[in-house]
Design a protein around this nucleic acid. Structure first.
Lengths: 201, 201
DNA sequence: ATCGCACTTGAACGTTGTTCATGACCATGC
DNA sequence: GCATGGTCATGAACAACGTTCAAGTGCGAT
């Protein structure tokens, strides 16, 4: 096995074990020594595969994004009218809630993690995010056909942010700690309200 | 000076210095040794005034909530009609954005901080939050007079959560990193859309 | 078989938050 | 004024963290 192959294998093992640890204990559950032991390597070996633990977290987070994309299923087909567009937006919002509930700590890691050096996320990470935002842009374009693409992209991100806020604070055991069914209803009410309100510009 | 008075004085000094440190460096900027030096006491003294550093953070966060309440000005008077209610909701959302921009790290600490033991926030903290949510419930009740109080309270919290999401992800330098003026417009668009969409149940 | 180099190793380093034996200090009683 | 008792602040010490790097191991080439 070449050195490159070994490094790749180590990377895979590390990410898989890190994923398990984060799923079990959140971001604080990822500890260098424990990770090394789980992956069957020395602590120092982690730093041959990743620049630091934040790099490991980033890799895990990418897998989480992929998992979410898979959970969304294939992209929606043609959306007939504004009513169907609103339905699709509600469906996406509730799918987001379902995913957050199914993988609470992994999902939490997506947003709680901050790169230490204040740098922006790497391109491959941003690209994955963009693919997910496209899911929102599609029904939004049906709802507001006259919107320029830049404005549609922007509005889609704000729609996501709003839904994210409802889910994040709603599920947070230290903030609202709402039952899932209640959050589900709130998403339905507010996303539908936004869709209805956006329809007439 | 009695022991209680001294402890209170120490508490005040610690909170003031901790506030400065968090404002300068966020939650990671609050370090026990540095705080003790700034407050002119020994590290151990911190633990005579607070159970741990999280207690200090909680006290700072309460001050931040008070600061935000002050920034909102006195509660709105009677709200004439649904149009005025929508205006007020937009105003509150944009005031929230302004505050987050004016005190980014202190505001960040409000949401990034997690109590370690998984316990809920203390009552005095929840009470202060409730006073702020009441600001949203007021115009919302004008918009939807038929709503039961529990539903109004719930919807107000979700409205806040949505706006919080737009502000938090919009300002986050590692996520959207949008210019403030853009976020301001997005709040206007979406809050107005929600208000319009909510008007007809 | 021997040599040389690259890569893995894990003890060590610097920083955390938190604790607790120590000693200083002050109020009280004689 | 002095001895005494108890209370409280002190900061060195501890455990746990991420990260590093001198040292050693092992593999491939000669």
């Amino acid at each position: 096995m070449s050195a490159d192959e070994r490094r790749r294998a180590l990377r895979d093992t590390l990410v898989a074990e890190a994923e398990r640890m984060i799923a079990a204990g959140g971001l604080p559950g990822l500890r260098a020594r424990e990770l090394a032991q789980a992956a069957g390597c020395a602590v120092g070996a982690i730093y041959t595969a990743f620049p630091d633990l934040d790099g490991v977290v980033l890799a895990v987070n990418l897998r989480t994004l992929n998992l979410f994309e898979a959970a969304l299923g294939p992209p929606a087909g043609r959306i007939a009218d504004a009513g169907a567009a609103a339905d699709e937006l509600v469906r996406l919002g509730q799918a987001y809630l379902d995913f957050a509930r199914a993988h609470p700590l992994r999902w939490d890691a997506l947003f709680r993690h901050r790169a230490p050096s204040g740098q922006r996320a790497p391109d491959w990470y941003v690209a994955e995010q963009a693919r997910l935002f496209a899911r929102i842009e599609q029904p939004l374009a049906v709802l507001r056909p006259e919107l320029a693409e830049t404005e549609c992209r922007l509005l889609a991100r704000s729609l996501f942010s709003a839904t994210h806020g409802i889910v994040a604070l709603g599920l947070d055991p230290q903030r609202l700690a709402l039952p899932a069914a209640v959050i589900r209803d709130q998403i339905e009410i507010l996303v539908r309200a936004m869709a209805a309100g956006l329809r007439r510009p």
